[in-house]
Design a protein around this nucleic acid. Structure first.
Lengths: 223, 223
DNA sequence: AACATTGTCAAACAGCTGTTTGAAGTCTGC
DNA sequence: GCAGACTTCAAACAGCTGTTTGACAATGTT
């Protein structure tokens, strides 16, 4: 019930960061909530930026290891054959939804992570890219193999859109309230809903992307 | 080339807010960029919060009026018949993508808006809900009529997911860079890609949402 | 036992925050 | 040309920010 100071600061920071955002959360708020001295934050982490980074890394590293492990398992089972897109989507986003369902901090963290992805602050995007690099590379390869008829650029956009849908899916009832009263208390239902949506979007017919303006499609054949 | 101080402050604020976020953007940064005196911000807007609200309202009100006008036009043409889901999606999200394609500030604003939707700060969500209320009500009604076989709760989630995809779609190349080098300079292509994805997700098969755990689906019939 | 390491704590630091003030300037209409 | 409203400006305000310091206690090592 009373871990060491370092852990208490991390937990308090995580909870406060998602409530107030990165800048609006002060070290005094964090250390007060953690029942620690103000100087303890700098003693254990060096700076506020380093503390925030530690908050992210603590769970994100584990999250992406889970994703890679899930992909490993699928690929072993498939014995070299391409995976089904649904399997890949489920392993990547399923891990995230499952973490968001975890009341013990995971829910808090996923909301924080969803926002961080489009965070303007540079140092956040910087170590986020670092943490994601390996897992993104693996999943890109798996998807390209599973969807050979989808142009790679097209897929990357769809992956990006899927990340956006995930971000909003875990963003919490506050954002949802704009649409009206919705129940977001059932993780299993959320999982099923998001998966349907993502697969539907991923497998949608390819758009006609012309290299030139939309109006009058010039059927200019290459010479 | 040199509008009045009030407009210069609004423009500078918009640009800086999307670059640094709401809290990290200071009035001194804004007024300096606007070549105005620090006190001018408070003189013209009263407070920093009111200034931010004005930045949002300036474009958001117009954006949602466009959406309602587009829906009006569709419904007049349909003469009481339900619209096609694709038409509704295109009118709602098309306006947004078109604004995001406008280099003259619209692009900046859409990135700001996408993030604001999940902003933790209360006063932002507060007037955002206010601005969205009318347009959401109209579109909900149109969608419910167009998709009578989709449960309303299911649709609201899908709408929420679509907003997430839109948010990421306009978030800019910074966020995309995590996935690798992608070209986001072609608005027409982005429009086509996003529409395909959204329609695909919207029309996806309904998920099996059980009220009880997923593992062993108990076929318990009502007494 | 004495030593070194590690952690905690109150206090202070310089710097930046949004906001207010009151005087100086600028523009109207008469 | 002068009154009156509107706008700009430099300066100051109290309050909060992240970080540092040096003294103190706790713990483990020789």
């Amino acid at each position: 019930m009373e871990p060491d100071t370092r852990s208490r600061i991390l937990d308090a920071a995580e909870s406060l960061l998602v409530q107030h955002g990165l800048d609006a959360t002060t070290l005094r708020m964090i250390t007060a909530a953690a029942q620690a001295n103000l100087a303890a934050a700098n003693y254990h982490f060096g700076s506020k930026e380093a503390l925030i980074e530690a908050v992210f890394r603590r769970r994100l590293t584990w999250l992406n290891e889970q994703r890679i492990a899930a992909l490993d398992a699928l690929e072993v089972e498939a014995k070299g054959a391409p995976l089904k897109p649904r399997q890949i989507v489920e392993s990547f986003f399923g891990v995230a939804i499952r973490m968001a369902a975890d009341k013990n901090g995971g829910q808090t963290f996923m909301r924080l992570l969803g926002r961080a992805y489009t965070e303007p602050t540079e140092f956040v995007r910087s170590f986020l890219a670092e943490e994601y690099a390996a897992v993104i590379a693996r999943y890109k390869a798996a998807f390209f193999k599973a969807l050979p008829d989808v142009p790679q650029e097209e897929f990357l956009w769809r992956f990006h859109f899927m990340m956006g849908a995930l971000s909003y899916a875990v963003s919490g009832a506050d954002a949802l309230s704009i649409l009206g009263p919705i129940d977001d208390s059932n993780p299993d239902a959320l999982y099923a809903r998001l998966m349907s949506f993502l697969i539907g979007g991923l497998r949608a017919p390819l758009p006609e992307v012309n290299s030139k303006p939309v109006r009058k499609a010039r059927t200019k054949r290459a010479a």
